[in-house]
């Protein structure tokens, strides 16, 4: 659950001297939204995002068509990139939660991963969503169950025991406080090696726990 395990290594990067229109092409062609701008030795000097490439309307209003074309073709990445205190980064040893924290706080979609000033990767919202999916075992075939349990010690153990005593496997698990309530938790489980009927029967036997939802997920996509 470290940034280094989920970031994209060797991201596509650019130099500060690249023209903005080329950077735009680079991002569109490779379907990416963040491009770190680096100097010699992959040292981070800025970040270009798609928003940054969009020109503010007031600039456009004051220029005629020919001027816009010239304005664009002369402009380099160094003019539009995010730098200084607006440029947020994260280290490879940080946890994913820390990365999420930075992204939420500043409302940004991606962070260059930097080790001693050198870019080693990039982590984006997509990477976090992938991690969420894997945390809940969304890609594996099995039964996705949501259980509502009282907020007290030992409920996890009772639930897990009910499943593992029957020789079934729990592939993934996550828990959140039940939305808008303080006295209960929702536990999301991914269970395999059993049928839906068996599983439902076993879960209903657990006292004071409630089956909220059960469905089959992780089937191969058509």
């Amino acid at each position: 659950m470290f940034v280094k395990d989920y970031m994209t290594r060797h991201p596509i990067m650019t130099e500060a001297t690249m023209r903005v229109i080329d950077a735009q092409k680079l991002m569109v062609e490779n379907n990416i939204r963040h491009v770190p701008v680096v100097g010699s030795g992959k040292r981070l000097i800025g970040l270009v995002t798609r928003q940054r490439l969009a020109l503010p309307p007031e600039t456009l209003a004051s220029l005629d068509v020919w001027e816009i074309a010239r304005h664009l073709s002369d402009m380099t990445v160094s003019k539009v990139m995010i730098t200084g205190k607006d440029l947020h980064t994260i280290g490879p040893e940080a946890t994913l939660e820390e990365a999420a924290d930075v992204m939420i706080e500043h409302k940004i979609g991606g962070l260059p991963v930097v080790e001693e000033g050198i870019v080693v990767g990039i982590i984006t919202e997509t990477d976090l969503l992938i991690q969420l999916q894997e945390l809940l075992g969304a890609q594996d075939h099995g039964w996705r169950v949501v259980m509502r349990v009282p907020d007290r010690l030992g409920e996890y153990r009772r639930l897990i025991r009910a499943i593992s005593d029957r020789g079934w496997g729990v592939m993934a698990m996550g828990s959140v406080r039940t939305p808008k309530r303080t006295d209960a938790w929702d536990i999301i489980l991914k269970v395999r090696h059993c049928t839906q009927g068996e599983l439902l029967l076993a879960l209903k036997e657990i006292e004071e726990q409630e089956v909220i939802d059960i469905r089959e997920t992780g089937l191969p996509k058509a």
Binding site: Y6, T8, H10, E29, N30, I32, T126, I130, Q139, D140
Partner: peptide, 12 residues
């Protein structure tokens, strides 16, 4: 490897 393959462009 992560099961969810992220669409990515080739390095080369």
């Amino acid at each position: 490897p992560p099961l969810t393959a992220k669409p990515s462009s080739p390095v080369v």
